[in-house]
Amino acid sequence: MADRAFDIRRMPGAVTLAVVCFVILYIPMVILVANSFNAGKVIGQWEGLSLRWYLAALQNEAFLAAAANSLVLATIAAFMATVLATMAALATTRSDGFRGKGAIHIVLNQPLMVPEIVLAIALLIILAQVKQATGYTGLGYLIAAHTTFCIPFAYMPIRARLEGMDMTLETAAADLYASRAYAFRRVTLPLLAPGILAGFMLAFVVSLDDVVISSFLKSPGQETLPTYLMGELRRNLSSEIYAISSLLLLISVLIVAGSWLATRQKT
């Protein structure tokens, strides 16, 4: 068979397209980072290398507070959405239909169907009543709203993963008298992990990008990065924006590199 030497993993053209895809994704990032070192204030007018915008960004309390808010919010909302979506995906896949399955599926996708601005205003009207009744003005409202619209984004990849997943291993484990929980933890969950990771990252990204819902629901002091940058961008675009973005990029690269190294060491 050596002469056929065919590896199904090599789809013709797939690698080329994938490389093109990565390049396209990163070109704007390169432009962004390059501009962040611009000594000049105006984007597109190069005036030499400088770190002045990084210094400015690191002393910008409003930015730092907004960044912190956003990271906390995105992490918690993505985590909760992923947990809820995983449970729901386990319920709606790998079975012949059961009563209500279609309905559950539609409900889980419902937040996708509502434009941001509409959900924002509707939530504002309802949550304002809750705020007045309870006096609570914390981050909880934003977390709940973000969790809600993140659920379908986490649910879809997890469901795609589960769909038609081989059940023999679980059945085998159950046959060997493993408890249901044990079988889930040791067999199902590891099989599901890539889907869960994909779902979490999608939810995280979606939460991080939300402007409209956050700006309608935020209470005093709850500026998030997108709501902060939106105001900033509209009038006063300076190289500081690029420094701010590059800093965030650096943080994310560090997190990725760290987690990658951590998993490598396990082997």
Partner: peptide, 21 residues
């Protein structure tokens, strides 16, 4: 996991900033 993160990292940058880039 590494490649997957490479896909999402550009999206950690704010939508507006990305659009301007």
């Amino acid at each position: 996991g590494f490649w997957l993160f490479l896909i999402t990292i550009p999206f950690w940058t704010n939508l507006l900033v990305r659009t301007i880039a």
